[in-house]
């Protein structure tokens, strides 16, 4: 059996530290998700409006955020704004800002897609039955939109959790960073620690994201 360096995990508080790192990553993603969902719904509703200016502005925002790699966005907000505006915002806050900007753009696009995928006839057949506009939205349109949206937004959430591994680049100590620190600190005593520690990181991400993936697939099948 090759030495996987797993024993490092049981030294000192290493395992607790890794879990703490996972929590730091989850905290950033969960706060960003909590902000992105309402903002994204708002953005999505704006994106299907007929006004040309609103459409153009939201479109540019979406394309800009999409084209820009998240890492570059993190650098702009964390390093760039510090130099340009003399602001001193923490790595965590910078991360939440970037992930909220990104999550809002992605969520907005999902909401837009879900809204325009409801055929015009659904509105008409509901109206033809004598339902008022508000009743049509409440009983017919929103339930269908939400059903289309939930599996897609669960996937977005897992993507956001995974992408938080980038925030170590702006000095936030999250799970991947803790893993690096543990490996560095034990370079002499356990030179093989990299495999075992990163394997553990992989498992931690897996444990965080897998239930969400399962939920998304379950909902997709139920409502497909």
């Amino acid at each position: 059996m090759p030495d996987l360096g797993l024993e490092v995990l049981f030294k000192g508080k290493n395992m607790i530290r890794l879990l703490g790192g996972l929590w730091a990553a989850l905290k950033i993603s969960l706060i960003s998700v909590a902000l992105s969902i309402p903002l994204g719904i708002l953005l999505g509703i704006l994106m299907v409006r007929k006004e040309v200016v609103i459409r153009a502005v939201t479109r540019i925002y979406l394309e800009f955020i999409r084209i820009m790699p998240q890492l570059v966005l993190l650098f702009i907000v964390f390093f760039g704004s510090a130099r340009a505006f003399g602001s001193d915002i923490s790595g965590e806050l910078s991360s939440v800002i970037v992930f909220t900007l990104w999550g809002t753009a992605e969520m907005g696009d999902l909401v837009r897609g879900a809204i325009i995928s409801i055929p015009k006839h659904q509105y008409e057949s509901s109206a033809a039955l004598g339902l008022k506009n508000s009743q049509t939205y409440f009983y017919i349109i929103i339930p269908q939109t939400v059903r289309r949206l939930i599996p897609l937004s669960v996937n977005l959430i897992t993507r956001m959790i995974k992408t938080t591994s980038l925030v170590l680049m702006i000095g936030v100590v999250e799970v991947t960073k803790v893993a690096q620190q543990i490996i560095e600190a034990n370079r002499m005593t356990s030179p093989n620690a990299a495999f075992g520690v990163y394997l553990t990181v992989f498992l931690l991400y897996f444990i965080a994201c897998w239930p969400l993936s399962l939920l998304a697939r379950h909902l997709e099948r139920k409502w497909g």
Binding site: H121, S125, S126, A128, G130, Q144
Partner: peptide, 19 residues
């Protein structure tokens, strides 16, 4: 909406509510 209750309409593409 009140008047429409007196008018039943059936469309070519059925348009049942899928949910």
């Amino acid at each position: 909406p009140a008047l429409r209750q007196k008018i039943g309409m059936v469309f070519q593409s059925y348009e049942l509510f899928p949910h």
